[in-house]
Design a protein around this nucleic acid. Structure first.
Length: 953
RNA sequence: GCCCAGAUGGUGGAAUCGGUAGACACGAGGGACUUAAAAUCCCUUGGCCUAACGGCCGUACGGGUUCGAGUCCCGUUCCGGGCACCA
């Protein structure tokens, strides 16, 4: 009786052994090269893991094990992103305290993860909601509060340095990222009181309190960051979001725009994610030009990327929210402008986004074009955004479609500037062509120091450059780079998040001393959010800071002299996930976020695996956060994640039955067209290969107990469709169920076999038998009919070695490139070949076991042990590939034709002349392209080159 | 509208450098073993023509480069993703 592949016993045994032996425990080891593999840690949601979640974990686990076998010291940690909206929403839905549900969910996740055989070092687990963890989130926030961004050195600097500058020079010569431009002298600074000085510093701090327009979501009772809002509704829940001015904590992410952009060139991420981040950062190089308001001494600045179109300006437009609106509105126009402003205020962000109505009002004033000297009317319109550039534009209707629509609507002039551009129907927006009309024939441009700008005859690009130079030289404006990236709103009016380590002394925020951290989240009875924005932490009684005794005390003791109120807001979900990869390097350190030694050893993440949906959220924030910590010298690399792989989503494959309308009779797929039927979702777990288990169906729900069936060939065939994997579609496939039925090794193999890791694809349990069969076959390589190990010390044959080395080459290359789906067929082919060859040689079967170990660690351990090893297969050396076993040739390309054609062929170094000649002749067909030619002679030249001599037939 | 990535049998997908398209697996059909079932094994399986040998067509569509194109170039269609009154 052959020894059976008993995956249940094998997997249970090795799961226990790994825990007992601490097989996956990793420590800093200077004698080995490090490799840091990381998965995006999960939100422990209530639904548990479905079969799609482990996809990325399996892929990275294989990579981690591969690297370990190559001799690297591999860090592969796991933890839980357990603070934030999803966890809290789940708690609210189930009416339980988030702490309770979060811990329950974490336990469930852990249980599921443990069944799949990952090589995680669980001693390094982090949870963002653990005080020992969020101590460092709070600490990092305080560091940002105490820093500003120097625009000259492009680095974070201590705020003390900025204060010193203000004391010495005021804002003169200050190079700092700021919310708005301030101008005051050193004397003025010194004359300010504490509150005023604090307000000024807020303008520069990297973490600051700002009165800004925020995305307010009444349904969730909180503000949201820009990436958490899509098309006017919240990503989480899909609730409407409105714009509201609120005092909020913000992070000055925008200061790092250029570094965030530049860093993209140094990392191996997919082009599409890099592109998404580039769009999100939105760098745009342009020119700021000053326009005088006619009849006054006032000027205002506009931003344009089309400096070449200065001569085509026919009007100016201000954003309705612009402060200039009041200045330029004349008495006659006041009523019309006021009416327009109130109309705009009545429109929600969503309305403005969905319909692009052409609306606007004339202010009554004119601006003087510094190039033509002509007066252009100043309009006010909602199509100009207050938050971008200067909130004011010069309108060139001939070459901008929005300006064009506005000009047509209000009958304003349109002056084309590019040769051959036809603007009678639409604007010519392309940045191509030869500039003309600049200045127009018969006119002259305004001269500065005797020099006037002439752009005629230049290309658009040349004209932009020429204008920039002119503008700079004559102080009409300046070259300016704008970014679309906004500062991140960092507070939430929610309960389940990190409290701010901040208290308010007479309204001025103060940092709680770092040695008193963490400030733990207080227990409250009622943690529900409110639609008015009252934070739930307002319900906490013990929530005041005693400055003298340095501890948290009862609110009743607040006296504003020694006891002060603590911040009621909490931090957003991305706070805890922004630097967790650093904490894994040294997770139990209570004195620092991480030690110097750990930081220097592990550096940064070599391979990061996770979904692409975090492109504009987590992946921007943590890059920002890391750059800040890099400036402080804590993180040792400018970029946190060197290589990023985005695993695709696993969709569900739903099954349907067709019920004849008004009956309890169900028709099989092939017969449904003959009846009037309604499709009904059926649980995929009672369907196999689209064949319904009729009895299970009857038992599924009481209303189907007496269902009748119209069968085809005695079977009921179900319909199917690809949909999102969700409970309501009855298409959720649970990994535990697969592990129970086929084993973790089969699950791991099949998840990888399903298709490229990066690609989204539906889960279809149907194909899993193939992978399971393969593992049985692989098992049979090692055991004879009597269940005895049949591995011996015989010398492998050439065929054995060829099969093995083909596989080594393929699998080694595949793992490096993350294309596991093509390695698995290679395993199948090699296994079949070795079975046919009746190969029992240890010299082949040991490397085979080492090769499969990253994919299927349980079976590999079992076989490794059976072959007499008492060390783990995780440390089995990755087999070296040797080309000499692959005697193959292939014609590369004919390089010459003079009656003689020279082919380059590849041969192993020790191939005989005979072999090469034979191979070359076998490739004779390749020469057949020469119609009417005949191969006459093949000359083999040592050094891998052969000459094939041909002649006309 | 702009940017990015795609399109290969009934299905998932191979073809990694421009060199035999469809590896491997699923599904389907046929067969062996079996009282039967399960399990296992073997054969067939892109389309069309042919009794067969064999031939022709075929990688979304239309062109091009090349001795040779799924692969490179130009254009078109369709699907997915990102950005979007960003001046």
């Amino acid at each position: 009786m052959a020894k059976e592949y008993n995956f249940r016993d094998i997997e249970t045994k090795w799961r226990q052994r790994w825990v007992l032996d601490k097989t996956y425990h990793v420590t800093e080891d200077g004698s080995k090269k490090k490799f840091y593999v990381l998965n995006m840690f999960p939100y422990p949601s209530g639904a548990g893991l479905h079969v799609g979640h482990p996809l990325g974990y399996i892929a990275s686990d294989i990579y981690a094990r591969f690297k370990r076998q190559q001799g690297f010291n591999v860090l592969n940690p796991m933890g839980y992103d357990s603070y934030g909206l999803p966890a809290e929403q789940y708690a609210i839905q189930t009416g339980q305290h988030p702490e309770k549900t979060t811990f329950q969910n974490i336990d469930r996740y852990r249980e599921q993860l443990d069944k799949i055989g990952f090589c995680f070092d669980w001693d390094r687990e982090v949870r963002t909601c653990a005080p020992g963890y969020y101590k460092w989130t709070q600490w990092a926030f305080q560091q940002m509060y105490e820093s500003y961004f120097c625009t000259t050195c492009q680095k974070a600097q201590p705020i003390a340095k900025l204060i010193a500058h203000l004391e010495a020079n005021g804002t003169e010569g200050l190079c700092a990222a700021q919310s708005e431009e301030l101008n005051f002298t050193a004397e003025e600074w010194k004359a300010m009181d504490a509150k005023q000085q604090n307000d000024v510093l807020m303008n520069y701090r990297l973490a600051f309190l700002g009165e800004t327009m925020v995305n307010w979501c009444p349904e969730l009772g909180t503000v949201l960051a820009n990436d958490e809002v899509v098309e006017g509704v919240s990503v989480r829940g899909g609730f409407p979001v409105e714009q509201k001015k609120m005092r909020q904590w913000c992070l000055r992410v925008s200061a790092y725009s250029q570094r965030l952009l530049d860093g993209l060139d140094t990392i191996q991420w997919s082009e599409s994610i890099k592109e998404t981040q580039k769009n999100w950062i939105g760098r745009s190089e342009g020119t700021e030009v000053e326009f005088k308001i006619a009849g006054t001494d006032e000027t205002f600045t506009i931003f344009t990327t089309r400096a070449d179109t200065m001569f085509g300006v026919t009007f100016m437009v201000l954003a309705p929210e612009s402060e200039l609106v009041a200045k330029v509105t004349t008495a006659e126009q006041k009523q019309a402008v006021d009416e327009y402003i109130s109309y705009v205020k009545g429109r929600t962000e969503r309305e403005r986004m969905i319909d692009h109505k052409v609306t606007g009002v004339f202010s009554g004033s004119y601006a003087i074009n510094p190039f033509t000297g002509e007066q252009n009317p100043i309009w006010i319109s909602e199509y100009v955004l207050a938050g971008y550039g200067t909130g004011a534009i010069m309108a060139v209707p001939a070459h901008d479609s929005r300006d064009y629509a506005f000009a047509k609507h209000f009958h304003l002039p349109i002056i084309p500037l590019i040769e051959g551009a036809d603007v009678s129907e639409e604007s010519y927006d392309a940045k191509e062509g030869i500039v003309s009309n600049s200045p127009a024939a018969g006119k002259t441009a305004v001269a500065y120091d005797g020099e006037a700008l002439v752009l005629n005859g230049l290309t658009v690009k040349e004209a932009i450059q020429a204008t920039k130079v002119f503008v700079k030289k004559h102080h009409i404006g300046r070259v300016k780079v704008n970014y679309r990236l906004r500062d991140a709103i960092f507070s939430r009016q929610r309960y389940w998040g990190e409290p701010f380590p901040v208290y308010y002394k007479n309204g001025i925020p103060q940092m709680i001393p770092a040695d008193c951290l963490p400030i733990e989240l207080p227990q409250v009875e009622n943690f529900l959010p409110t639609a008015t924005g009252e934070p739930p932490l307002g319900n906490a009684q013990i929530w005041a800071w005693d400055e003298v005794n340095r501890k948290i005390v009862d609110k009743a003791l607040i006296d504003e002299t020694t006891v002060f109120p603590i911040e009621l807001y909490t931090m957003p979900g991305f706070a805890g996930s922004s630097a967790y990869y650093l904490r894994y390097m040294d997770p139990h350190n209570d004195d620092a976020l991480l030690s110097e030694e750990a930081a220097n050893y592990w550096q940064n993440v070599d391979l990061y695996v996770g979904g692409s949906e975090h492109a504009t959220g987590h992946l921007i924030y943590s890059r920002f956060w890391n750059k800040f910590l890099f400036d402080l010298g804590i993180s040792k690399k400018e970029e946190p994640f060197q290589k990023l792989v985005n695993q695709g989503m696993i969709q569900g494959r739903s099954n349907f039955v067709h019920r004849i309308q008004g009956t309890n009779t169900f028709v099989s797929l092939g017969l449904k067209d003959q009846y009037d039927v309604t499709p009904i979702h059926v649980d995929v777990n009672i369907v196999k290969n689209d064949v319904l288990d009729v009895e299970a169906f009857k038992a599924w729900r009481p209303e189907y107990a007496d269902a009748e069936f119209l069968l085809e060939d005695g079977k009921y065939i179900c319909d199917w469709a690809i949909e999102k994997m969700s409970k309501s579609m009855f298409n959720v496939v649970n990994p535990d169920m697969i592990v129970e039925r086929y084993g973790a090794d089969t699950l791991r193999l099949y998840e990888m076999f399903l298709g490229p890791v990066e690609q989204s694809k539906p889960w279809d349990t149907n194909g899993i038998d193939g992978c399971h069969r393969f593992l049985k076959k692989f098992w049979m390589l090692f055991w004879d009919k009597d269940g005895q190990l049949q591995v011996d010390d015989s010398e492998p044959t050439a065929d054995n070695m060829k099969s093995l080395h083909k596989l080594i080459k393929k699998v080694s290359a595949d793992i490096e490139e993350f294309s596991y789906n093509t390695s698995i067929p290679a395993f199948m082919v090699a296994t079949t070949e070795l079975l046919q060859q009746k190969c029992h040689s240890r010299k082949v079967l040991e490397p085979m076991t080492a090769l499969i170990a990253p994919f299927c660690p349980h079976i590999a351990e079992e076989l490794w042990e059976a072959m007499g090893h008492n060390t783990t297969v995780c440390d089995a050396q990755w087999p070296a590939f040797d080309e000499k076993y692959l005697v193959e040739s292939s014609v590369k390309m004919p390089v010459q034709f003079n009656g003689k054609v020279r082919f380059t062929m590849e041969f192993p170094a020790d191939a005989s002349k005979d072999d090469m000649e034979k191979a070359a002749l076998a490739d004779e067909q390749s020469a057949k392209y020469l119609a009417g030619m005949q191969v006459v002679k093949v000359v083999v030249v040592p050094g891998r080159i052969i000459n094939i001599v041909i002649k006309p037939e």
